[in-house]
């Protein structure tokens, strides 16, 4: 008889692992990636590949240098790379995208302790840093040329920029905005693809409805209150990708049910504040970053009371 394994209970574990969760997120991002290629051409694929490769490389190098365990297998670096790429315009110089990837992985994720420890969303923060550093190339929006895989480099305004300037008559149709046939970042324009991915994550139980519903709902209600075009506000900018894929980031958002709702509402409010009254046409990334900072407090306030006395829902 060989040595028996001695371990404390439980002796059963759910098959879900960090890796399988990240794989689900990657699967959920596939429609948005396909949409980005269809809308903005093959260069989209180059930007995505660039970000993913540099994210993985910087994670590997950092962990090697710090003699930490290699965590490439959990696929979280791949997820960060894809989300960052989808938050950049198609014409972004590849070296800038690479720099953003290094910032996301090394500065925002690894320096704070690696997966689960980062207080801010790596992709959102990296995008903000790139925007501040290279504002011209980061706001150089290619005009979408669907099914033209090698489009010429003409640029135009995004729907949000048009709305900010008050040129609402030149806004694209709702259908074009829903399908993503508008100017904007790689993966943020096609609401259809993002909703598909979001629904997949909901079905798989990777995310819950609380954050996206609170986030999108707040933007809708506030647009209505402020007399803005509700649908256009919902379908434009980085709102959809943020609501489903970035505001639901485990490590930088609250884990409690009410915490998620407060987080979503907060993101929605800040987004609206910046969109309507700020200097930038878009405020989603800033809203994420600001709410990320509040996450520990929100979590503390919304922690469920252990079952010691009354049972409430």
């Amino acid at each position: 008889m060989s040595q028996m394994i001695s371990a404390v209970s439980p002796h059963f574990h759910h098959p879900r692992t960090t890796r399988s969760i990240m794989l689900d997120v990657i699967i959920a991002l596939v429609p948005a990636m396909i949409a980005s290629v269809l809308i903005f051409g093959l260069r989209s694929l180059m930007v995505i590949a660039d970000c993913v490769a540099v994210c993985m490389l910087s994670e590997w190098v950092f962990e090697k240098l710090c003699k930490k365990e290699n965590t490439l297998g959990d696929l979280s670096a791949v997820v960060t790379g894809i989300i960052l790429a989808l938050n950049l315009p198609v014409g972004v110089p590849l070296w800038q995208a690479a720099l953003g990837s290094v910032i996301a992985i090394v500065v925002i994720k690894q320096l704070f302790g690696g997966i689960g420890q980062n207080f801010a969303n790596p992709a959102a923060t990296a995008r903000i840093i790139l925007m501040t550093a290279f504002s011209s190339s980061l706001t150089n929006w290619a005009v979408p040329q669907p099914f033209n895989f090698m489009p010429d480099a003409t640029t135009g305004a995004t729907p949000l920029a048009l709305m900010t300037k008050g040129e609402t008559e030149s806004l694209p149709s709702y259908l074009d905005m829903f399908l993503g046939n508008t100017g904007g970042c790689l993966g943020e324009t096609c609401a259809l693809a993002l909703i598909l991915g979001g629904v997949y994550l909901l079905i798989r139980g990777v995310i819950t409805w609380h954050t996206p519903v609170a986030f999108l709902g707040t933007v809708a209600v506030m647009s209505l209150v402020c007399g803005q075009d509700v649908l256009a506000q919902l379908l434009s900018g980085g709102l959809m990708i943020a609501a489903f894929f970035m505001a639901t980031d485990y490590s930088s958002s609250p884990a409690t049910k009410w915490g998620k709702i407060i987080f979503g509402v907060g993101c929605g409010l800040i987004t609206i504040l910046i969109r309507f009254w700020g200097n930038f046409p878009e405020g989603v990334s800033f809203s994420l970053l600001l709410m990320n900072i509040l996450t520990p407090y929100i979590e503390k306030l919304t922690r469920k009371k252990p079952l010691i006395g009354e049972v409430d829902n």
Partner: peptide, 24 residues
């Protein structure tokens, strides 16, 4: 019987949403 490999906490909150006694 093989115990699964332990990795870093990703802060997903599964433990606190599934605790029958609502502990964290």
């Amino acid at each position: 019987a093989q115990p699964p490999k332990t990795t870093a906490c990703i802060n997903c909150g599964a433990c606190l949403t599934h605790c029958p006694l609502r502990l964290d």
